[in-house]
């Protein structure tokens, strides 16, 4: 597919005006995400209250795919219970690596399906997934998430 189909208005909009940009001052969880391929580098901070995400923010330097993914992620997970968030992380990962057909299967991704097309751009999959890895790392109290090694969505399949 033409990648311009991926660069839809919603993604370009979130790239230009990222939601929840910055830091949660009184965060309970945080993590740093790195994609050495393109130098994407983000920080996710969040505050858990009663087992749900009460506040979440991100900042850093990244390409449009990564930034829009992070922005839409923060909007999608705010207010959700941790187990719901982990389900979304898994579904997002499955969608972008081609294991979940969002048109057919049941899922909770909603507008996040605009990233489905990234599965056809293998070198950009990591850009889309990085914020989700970083969120997962924050929730599991890992300081740094990377798109390489065990977390490599391509190698790990």
């Amino acid at each position: 597919m033409d990648s311009s189909q991926l660069y839809q208005e919603i993604i370009l909009d979130h790239n230009k005006k990222p939601r929840n940009w910055g830091k949660v001052a009184d965060c309970t969880h945080k993590s740093e995400g790195l994609n050495p391929l393109c130098g994407d580098h983000i920080w996710v901070t969040l505050k858990l209250a009663d087992g749900a995400i009460d506040a979440i923010a991100f900042e850093g330097q990244s390409c449009a795919i990564c930034k829009a993914s992070a922005s839409m992620m923060t909007a999608a997970v705010k207010g959700r219970k941790v187990d719901e968030v982990e389900t979304l992380v898994q579904e997002f990962r499955d969608m972008t690596t081609g294991k979940l057909d969002v048109a057919g299967g049941a899922h909770h991704l909603g507008r996040l399906t605009v990233f489905a097309g990234v599965k056809d751009l293998p070198v950009r999959v990591k850009c889309a997934i990085l914020p989700w890895h970083t969120l997962h790392a924050a929730l599991t109290q890992e300081a740094v998430a990377s798109t390489e090694g065990d977390n490599d969505p391509i190698a790990a399949g």
Binding site: D2, S3, Y7, C38, S62, C63, A64, R124, C127
Partner: peptide, 22 residues
């Protein structure tokens, strides 16, 4: 302020091969 990886991905739509990165 477009990230070079976005530039490279989109140029590829026009058949143009450039390198992006460090």
């Amino acid at each position: 302020d477009v990230h070079p990886h976005d530039v490279g991905t989109l140029l590829n739509d026009d058949g143009i091969a450039v390198r992006t990165g460090h």
